[in-house]
Nucleic acid binder design. Structure first.
Lengths: 123, 123
DNA sequence: CGGGATCCCGGATGATACTG
DNA sequence: CAGTATCATCCGGGATCCCG
C-alpha cells in the first residue's frame, strides 16, 4: 500500500460507492459483528472462522481507511487491539438494516423456489 | 454457463445476499439507468460507454436470473430487446435509494476531505 | 497477539472477431 | 441490433512463513 491516502475514484453512481465500501468478501460479516459490540482481532477470527488473517487484516484496514471503524491499540504485552464502529460508521447502520431486510426476504424466497432462469418474454 | 438454475449459496448474512445481487462491477449502473425507464441493449451501451458487450450481456443475464429485470424481445428485423425492472426488481428500489443517499453524502465528504489513513488511536 | 511479506491461483474482466 | 466465442489479462483472495 504505497500512498497513505486512498484515492477515492470518482463514482458517478452512489450505489457503487456503497458497494465499494461494504462490498468486500468479509466486510459485511465484520460490520455485522461490530454492530453487536467492539471486537478484538482474535475475536473476529473466531467469529469468522473461514477468513484468513491476511484478508481479515486487509478488510479491517479498508474499513478503517474509509473511517467506518475505529482501531484502538492497547500497548500492553502482549499487545491488544480492538475494533469498533466509528460515529461515521454508525450512520451506515440504517443502510445495512435495509439491505438486511431485503436480503432476508430474498433468501427465503430462494430457499423454497428454485429459480427458473432465462424465461425470456416474447412479443 | 452450464446449469440453468443458479445455485443460491447459503448466506448467513443477508447483506452478502444484496451485495451478491447488485454488487457486480456494472450492475449498480445498469439498475440506476433502468430506474429511470426501460432501456434497449444499445441504449445501455451508450449510457455506460466503458462496458464491453460481453460484460453488459453477462450482468444483464445475472440480473434477469435473479428476477430483478425483465427482458422483452421484439422479433423485428433488426431484432429489438429491451430491459426493464421487474415487479420484484421494484421491491429493491427503496434499498437502492437508501444506498444512494448514503453514498452521495460519502462522496461529498471525500471530494472535499482527503482521507488521512491509519490514524490508529493509542491508549 | 496482531499482524506483515511473498508467492500463487482461479475467476472476474477485457479485447477482438464473428453471427443470426 | 443484440448478442456469442475465444483468447488474454488482471486482481481478489488464499497458503505459508516471518516478526515486534
Amino acid at each position: 500500500m504505497e500512498a497513505n491516502v486512498e484515492v477515492v475514484a470518482e463514482r458517478k453512481c452512489p450505489i457503487e460507492t456503497v458497494i465499494h465500501i461494504v462490498g468486500g468478501k468479509w466486510k459485511p460479516l465484520i460490520l455485522w459483528h461490530l454492530l453487536d459490540s467492539n471486537k478484538r482481532f482474535s475475536e473476529l477470527e473466531k467469529l469468522i472462522p473461514e477468513v484468513t488473517q491476511k484478508m481479515l487484516t486487509q478488510h479491517l484496514r479498508e474499513l478503517e481507511n474509509n473511517r467506518l471503524i475505529t482501531r484502538t491499540i492497547y500497548p500492553t504485552v502482549p499487545i491488544k487491539v480492538d475494533y469498533s464502529l466509528s460515529e461515521y460508521g454508525l450512520t451506515l447502520v440504517p443502510v445495512l438494516k435495509v439491505m438486511c431486510a431485503w436480503g432476508e426476504i430474498h433468501n427465503q424466497m430462494n430457499s423454497s423456489v428454485r429459480v427458473p432462469a432465462r424465461v425470456g418474454v416474447q412479443i
